[in-house]
């Protein structure tokens, strides 16, 4: 399996009237071809800003990349020229946004918007490009695709629009797709349809997928690996089963314990105290320490590195697991004691 995307120690700042906010404070993650990485985080965790920096669509100013590398198939996107980067974007990597209505051009029929991809990137004739656009709409299961190609974005329902966005991202069969909360605005039955289409196409073309979401349920459904972000940093990475069975960071565990379940009725929910921090005034040491039940003096002073989490004999799967908690071992031991 080849490494498709590798983000190394990426840093992004926002200059605002009230000061400089470190939106992304040294994020590293990797996606292999054909794999799905979920980036899980709450609002303000830096998950979307990281993706925008990777795609090269960061609003700048106020945003500014201050360090790190983004290696796409081994080449650093941050140091290459604008023209070269533009050719990679769209053809080799594409992005799906949450709000399809503002991501699509409102005054151009959807068929023409899809066809434009083929005309510009592949030099197809208008007629061939139109034909391919309709095929693409059929692939994402838009009923009566040939007739609907002439419709404008506002004439489609939310779920259908999201499919058109997926079609547009898939058009040039990219190696990597970054999907930023692709189903968050959709109803649950429509969300299931859209995720199904996305998963099917991803499998078929063996694409890598970075799925950015706050929804622990969606992640459990589709991800191979998960990176959990908090206050602009990754606090834990793990294969999906390990993360849900044995989270190695108190924040991850708190999140898992605080979501109510549809498949059984629990007792009182666990609630993480406090609120996510203001990026203009991040707490010292570990940014989670003011909300952490396990916090010690060292957590206030020393920022934890991403520790390698080694699997105990016979548990978990081998491979890269990391946790940015000084006490990840105690966290796992406590969890195992409860489960024993």
């Amino acid at each position: 399996m080849s490494r498709l995307l590798e983000v190394c120690d990426l840093r992004v700042e926002f200059r605002t009237r009230d000061g400089v906010a470190e939106a992304v404070g040294g994020v590293s993650y990797a996606v292999d071809a054909g794999q799905t990485l979920a980036v899980l985080g709450e609002s303000g965790s830096g998950k979307s800003v990281t993706a925008q920096a990777v795609m090269g669509i960061l609003d700048s100013p106020p945003g500014r990349i201050t360090g790190g590398q983004v290696l796409f198939q081994g080449r650093d996107l941050l140091t290459m020229g604008a023209e070269e980067r533009r050719r990679i974007r769209g053809a080799a990597m594409a992005m799906i946004f949450q709000d399809a209505l503002s991501a699509l051009n409102p005054v151009v029929p959807v068929g023409a918007q899809l066809a434009e991809m083929y005309e510009v990137h592949r030099g197809m004739s208008r007629k061939d490009a139109r034909r391919r656009a309709v095929e693409l709409m059929e692939r994402v299961r838009i009923p009566a695709a040939a007739q609907r190609a002439g419709d404008h974005p506002h004439q489609f329902s939310g779920g259908m629009r999201q499919r058109i966005m997926i079609a547009m991202a898939m058009a040039l069969e990219p190696d990597l797709i970054i999907a930023d909360e692709p189903t968050t605005a959709l109803d649950v039955t429509v969300q299931a349809q859209v995720m199904e289409v996305l998963a099917e196409l991803r499998r078929e073309y063996a694409m890598g997928l970075v799925l950015i979401t706050h929804d622990l349920g969606v992640v459990a459904d589709v991800a191979d690996t998960i990176a959990v972000m908090y206050a602009g940093r990754i606090v834990e990475t793990a294969p999906v089963r390990d993360l849900y069975r044995r989270p190695a960071h108190p924040y991850t565990r708190g999140l898992l314990d605080s979501v109510p379940r549809v498949d059984h009725r629990g007792e009182r929910l666990y609630a993480i105290k406090g609120a996510p921090p203001n990026p203009l005034a991040l707490p010292s040491g570990c940014p989670f320490h003011p909300r952490c039940p396990r916090a010690q003096e060292v957590c206030r002073v020393e920022r934890p590195p991403l520790y390698e989490v080694t699997a105990a004999a016979g548990t978990g799967s081998p491979g890269a697991r990391t946790s940015a908690c000084h006490f990840w071992k105690d966290e796992l031991d406590a969890l195992d004691a409860v489960n024993a």
Binding site: T189, A192, Q193, E196, V219, A220, D221, R241, L256, V262
Partner: peptide, 27 residues
Amino acid sequence: QALLSAVPVPDPEPREGRTRLLLTGDV
């Protein structure tokens, strides 16, 4: 039934063996 089967459960284990009723079309 369709609504419940569409809810993603925050647990990777029951992915297998769970029936998903996918509704077609929109409301």
